[in-house]
């Protein structure tokens, strides 16, 4: 047994000449929320399908909860839940009937399935509409029904593909809270997304995918250090010709022009007080001075800018 709930070893998937996933080495620990990040077509969904045995890898090894998806998909699929991108249900059946079908496919007894459906609907807050046809449900409700669907089989691992895509902000918040709750119940979660701030909010660790490769992997803080460089990032809003003066403050690594009257300063230490003094002395008008929180969006943008415009130096 390995210490990881998901472990892949040089996992590769080719469609003809096109390499969808390229020598992927992914490790997910039990109980963590792992986020797969990347633009569309980076190989996120293909990776997920290979983890579940829904598509065959071209080469490499996969181990999910101690099983090989290519040979023992049933063992994995009875222990892991999958919520696909834009999960669909039978519109003419009610929420309860949809879940009952899944319960039967999982071989649950009638009394057991009644109990679990009750619990799952309660958990995702759909008890009141359990006898309504799913065709009348909103996207957000369907997505929550998708969670109820995987709770039914008491999954130890839930894999979600773009779970918050197409949801309104209110539903997104509710859904992210639901993900956190599930994680507190001890369920490991792997989710893919290109919506970065959401991933940042819930994920313990993230992996950044680019053209089939996982180019970065770690906590958000680790990635920020790797990509953005060590140090403090201060956003300054002030007018006046201050950029050269700022650069001369000891400890400043770089000052970048972001927009008119808006600069970004990278420094070895927190030197907001000195920066403020310098700006005022230079005759500028200081309107705001903020330490930037580490943001996946920045990491992402910076990383891809560097990838697309030559190597980072």
């Amino acid at each position: 047994m390995t210490d990881y709930i998901i472990e892949t070893n040089n996992l590769t998937k080719k469609y003809g000449e096109f390499i969808a996933v390229d020598s992927l080495n992914l490790q997910v620990k039990p109980g963590e929320i792992f986020g797969i990040l990347g633009p569309n077509g980076a190989g996120k969904t293909t990776t997920i399908l290979m983890l579940l045995g829904l598509t065959e890898p071209t080469s490499g090894n996969v181990n999910v909860m101690g099983y090989d998806p290519a040979r023992q998909p049933l063992s994995i699929k009875s222990r892991a839940g999958y919520i696909p991108d834009q999960v669909g249900f039978y519109g003419e059946l009610t929420a309860r009937e949809n879940l009952a079908y899944i319960a039967r496919l999982n071989g649950l007894s009638k009394s057991e399935s009644e109990q679990r459906i009750e619990f799952a609907l309660e958990k995702v807050g759909l008890s009141e509409v359990e006898n309504k046809a799913v065709g009348t449900f909103s996207r957000g409700m369907c997505q929550r029904l998708g969670v109820a669907d995987v709770l039914l089989k008491k999954a130890q691992l839930i894999i979600m593909d773009e779970p918050t895509q197409g949801l309104d902000p209110e539903s997104v918040r509710g859904f992210l809270n639901l993900i956190k709750e599930l994680s507190q119940d001890g369920i490991s979660i792997l989710l893919s997304s290109h919506l970065l701030h959401q991933v940042q909010e819930v994920c313990d660790r993230v992996g950044l995918f680019h053209q089939g490769k996982m180019v970065l992997c770690g906590t958000v803080a680790e990635l920020a250090r790797d990509v953005l460089g060590a140090g403090y990032h201060v956003q300054i809003k002030a007018n006046g010709k201050i950029i050269d003066d700022l650069r001369q403050i000891p400890g400043v690594i770089d000052v970048k022009f972001q927009a008119p009257d808006c600069y970004s300063l990278v420094a070895k230490r927190d030197l907001r007080a000195e920066a403020a003094r310098v700006i005022v002395n230079a005759g500028g008008q200081l309107t705001s001075l903020d330490i930037e929180s580490l943001n996946l969006d920045d990491i992402y943008n910076t990383y891809f800018k560097e990838v697309n415009h030559g190597p980072r130096g």
Partner: peptide
């Protein structure tokens, strides 16, 4: 088209 296929096939069946 109903997007149910991948959900059904992720159940323990072939």
């Amino acid at each position: 088209n109903r997007r149910t296929l991948s959900r059904i096939l992720s159940q323990p069946i072939y």
